[in-house]
Write a protein that binds this DNA or RNA. Structure first.
Length: 811
RNA sequence: GCCGAUAUGGCGGAAUUGGUAGACGCACUGGAUUCAAAAUCCAGCGGGAAACCAUGUGGGUUCGAGUCCCACUAUCGGUACCA
């Protein structure tokens, strides 16, 4: 039967009935745990990007299965989050209703894709049987001192009376009503990820991740070594701590800058400067971090009227505020050395602040222009004159340390993880507040703290859960008295920071966090997902894994041994697909028209998996054509005449192509290079057809070779391959077959072209037998007439022979 | 701004990681088949008459560079409350 969607259906129904994908946790085979980043069911359906992520990854899992592993390949849904809540606010449809409906649709689509998941091992992060354990995780972190509360700013729209996500702030205005968005401080929950900064850096060395992603993480964590130095205010009332990587330039400090939102500003600003400072703070609160950090933008700031004392020389320096200093990086204050720092130089020039030079180049002849940011020799620095930057860094900090005014420290750019959300659609934070006992964590046996269904979540200035009496009122777990619950919910990144540990416990298992089960199958051998998660999700999971290891729940401290990023499929116009741009492409139409296997093969063949690219369906018919060519070959193979004998060479060549195909495809699928894997399979089909054109053929060999082709494409096009398999007279499942093996002997057959270069330019090619040793090949080359005529009468200066690869002569 | 990528024929993309640039396809052209078309099959297909010139631009290292180094340009992703 010719391939179509009906064939997908035929096999999907059979495999479902047979329980083909049932996972056996007790298998004797070596485990292999692979998974993709779980989808967020915000849209009603899977989009093309999901297909591009999941279909090839499923082929990879099938390939691993054929290689003999006990493959665990689960899938779930990241179901809490902002879009569902916003959709609900807009339409009145409850987030739970829309989310569960979307999940049903997506599961159906995934089945139509032909994925090999066992749905008994799945999860939805919005269900109590899942978020009970998200809360359990919070409790463990809280008990370990890794969860704490502090004030932090949020985006606030005063007209909508609500907190806005960064995404909802457009050019500093609320996306709904256009009101200017301001920063407002709220008391919020944090996870102490900074405690793990060093471990997170070290762990990167031992995992097989793309180098670019590791780099992103190194920079995100942003380790810098330097010193913390204390400047006292002139009146002696306040200590201002600064972090600097250049304590050697301390004598060059001519002013200080503190972050406008710092509490200290309120305390030190003089009455004369108050008005300007207040105005500046308001102005700053309207900017986001990207705008503030831009070096394109002209620096702004204002004087607080207060002064600080330079601890190294007693100089009195003015204290300014400026938006280029951020409260949550370093100490929220900087010492400004305009002579030797680019930003400080620009700022000082604009506001006519003094510039004092304290570093000169090591060699007098070196170029020296301000700001001079290189290392050098100290000058104008009293007792430190003549020291090198390196020496002075140590000496100055040492001296300050004796007075209790400075010490060496390491600063990280990484901030603690803010996990509080003033929203409805998330896991409630398992904390209660009791007048008598204060902040009390909910005991594990009382979990989950259920998210109530009937809640007014339209924005009106109060966190949605606060408005639910049934939710807020509770008994204190410690004293039994009246208490109230925490009304904030958890960031959805918390839900997705441990989900890979939830899968191994089957859905109907009450006990989700079974150490033995988890440690048997985890960590994940290959994780597949977009590189947009390089910094956040992928750091959060690593952090949680390390914390749970330290708490004794895990035997490993890195969740993902190997990481693969799929590329992004853009709209046909080359832009990111989005509903607003109207450039989205629905996968369903293609699946209906061509069948799932043609579609997934086209996705794999038409794009570099790790790169993606703009969508273009021009070549999809070609894949249908490839399938037809295989189908007609199947027919030919079934009608072969028995008893004929082979002709020799073509047969040897056929076998060489066959073994080379297996070898190449094994390597290519292993590294997610599906496009070349499919290209190799096409070459094999071409070779088979060429061989079939012979007058005399070896039926046994060609049949075996063709069956090999069907086997190697079976993980890529499972339904189609199985259909051919059946047509060839087999009744068993290709899914359970072993991946074919390479015959090294077969690989060696045939001739090979050695390129001949003169001065690096290609002049000729000599064909030699691959059976020869490299030395024998060189002899053959030198005997060749073409080579001799090229070299005739030339003076050979140098010969370069790369054994068996290339021969280059310099004349 | 900062951090991380990417750039190869008309198109998608290969290139065993410094060794014949353009595998495998698409599109196109010519031929066979056909009353005709579709489908299929066969052949050709970077530019140039050739010497040669060609992997975003300009330099460099090397016997040899798509691949390594330096300086640019353009595009994409992330930038901590989209996930």
């Amino acid at each position: 039967m010719k391939y179509s969607k009906e064939i997908d259906k035929k096999w999907q129904d059979k495999w479902k009935k047979d329980g083909l994908y049932k996972y056996n946790p007790n298998s004797e085979k070596e485990k292999f745990y692979t998974m993709e980043m779980l989808p967020y069911p915000s849209g009603a359906k899977l989009h093309l990007g999901h297909w591009f992520n999941f279909a090839p990854a499923d082929s990879f899992a099938r390939f691993k299965k054929m290689q003999g592993y006990n493959v665990f390949h689960p899938m779930g849904f990241d179901a809490f989050g902002l879009p569902a809540e916003n959709y609900a606010i807009k339409t009145g449809i409850h987030p739970e209703d829309s989310t569960l409906k979307n999940i049903e649709t997506m599961k159906r689509q995934l089945d139509e894709m032909g994925v090999s998941y066992d749905w008994n091992y799945s999860l939805e992060t919005c269900m109590p049987d899942y978020y009970k354990w998200t809360q359990w995780l919070f409790v463990q972190l809280y008990k370990a001192g890794l969860a704490y509360k502090k004030e932090a700013p949020v985006n606030w729209c005063d007209s909508c009376k609500t907190v806005l996500a960064n995404e909802q702030v457009i050019n500093g205005e609320c996306e709904r009503c256009g009101t200017a968005v301001v920063k407002k401080k709220l008391s919020q929950w944090f996870f102490k990820i900074t405690d793990y900064a060093e471990d997170l850096l070290k762990g990167l060395e031992k995992i097989d991740w793309p180098e670019s992603t590791k780099k992103v993480q190194y920079n995100w964590i942003g380790k810098s070594e330097g010193a913390e130095i204390i400047f006292k205010t002139e009146d002696g009332k306040h200590n201002i701590k600064v972090f600097t990587t250049r304590p050697d330039t301390l004598n060059g400090v001519t002013y200080m800058v503190i972050a406008p939102e710092s509490q200290l500003v309120q305390e030190i600003t003089t009455p004369e400067c108050k008005e300007k400072v207040e105005e500046y703070i308001l102005q700053t609160s309207k900017l986001n971090e990207i705008e503030r950090m831009s070096t394109e933008k002209e620096k702004t700031g204002t004087f607080t009227g207060a002064y600080a004392i330079n601890p190294v020389n007693g100089d009195k320096v003015p204290i300014w505020i400026a938006d280029y200093v951020l409260e949550d990086y370093g100490t929220g204050a900087v010492m400004a050395v305009p002579a030797h720092d680019e930003r400080d130089y620009e700022f000082a020039s604009k506001y006519k602040l003094p510039i004092k030079e304290v570093i000169k180049p090591k060699n007098e002849t070196d170029e020296y222009t301000l700001p001079y940011c290189e290392y050098g020799i100290l000058k104008n620095s009293n007792q430190y004159d003549g020291l090198t930057t390196k020496e002075a860094k140590n000496k100055i900090v040492e001296d300050l340390n004796k007075q209790g005014l400075g010490e060496k420290t390491i600063n990280y750019r990484l901030k603690d993880w803010l996990v509080s959300r003033q929203r409805y659609w998330g896991a409630p934070i398992p904390i209660v507040y009791c007048d008598k006992c204060g902040t009390v964590v909910v005991p594990e046996e009382d979990l989950p703290v259920l998210l109530p269904y009937n809640v007014e979540f339209k924005p009106d200035g109060v966190s949605p859960l606060k408005k639910s009496e049934e939710f807020m009122h509770c008994k204190c777990p410690k004293c039994g008295g009246e208490a109230t619950r925490e009304a904030d919910t958890l960031d959805t990144f918390v839900c997705s920071s441990w989900y890979e540990l939830r899968y191994p416990c089957a859905k109907n298992d009450k006990e989700a966090f079974n150490k033995d089960i988890i440690n048997k199958v985890a960590p994940i051998d290959v994780y597949v997902g977009g590189k947009e998660h390089a910094a956040m999700h992928l750091i959060y999971v690593r952090f949680i894994t390390k914390a749970l290891k330290d708490l004794g729940y895990l035997d490993f401290d890195e969740p993902f041994k190997k990481l693969i990023h799929q590329g992004m499929i853009l709209g046909p116009d080359g832009n990111k697909m989005s509903k607003s741009k109207g450039n989205t492409v629905s996968p369903d139409e293609y699946v209906d028209k061509y069948g799932a296997d043609v579609f997934r093969m086209y996705l794999m063949f038409g794009f570099d998996y790790c790169k993606g690219g703009p969508w273009d369906d021009k070549g999809i018919e070609a894949m249908t054509k490839y399938f037809s060519r295989i189908e007609s070959a199947t027919e030919k193979i079934n009608n072969l005449k028995e008893g004929t004998t082979s002709k020799g060479m073509p047969e040897q060549e056929l076998l060489r192509v066959k073994s080379n195909t297996i070898k190449s495809m094994t390597r290519d699928i292993e590294i997610f290079q599906f496009n070349t894997a499919i290209a190799r399979s096409m070459e094999l089909l071409n070779a088979i057809n060429e061989y079939l054109a012979n007058d005399e053929i070896n039926t046994e060999i060609v049949k075996d070779t063709f069956e090999t082709l069907i086997k190697v494409i079976s993980p890529l096009a499972p339904h189609f391959a199985q259909e051919q398999w059946e047509t060839l007279g087999h009744t068993d499942e290709l899914y359970n077959y072993s991946w074919p093996e390479v015959n090294e002997q077969e690989l060696k057959g045939g001739m090979k072209n050695i390129p001949i270069q003169v001065n690096g330019k290609l002049k000729a090619c000599v064909s030699v037998s691959t059976a020869l040793t490299p030395e024998e090949m060189l002899e053959e080359i030198k005997k060749d007439k073409k080579v001799q005529s090229i070299l005739e009468g030339k003076e050979i200066k140098k010969e370069i022979y790369i054994p068996g690869k290339i021969y280059n002569v310099v004349i």
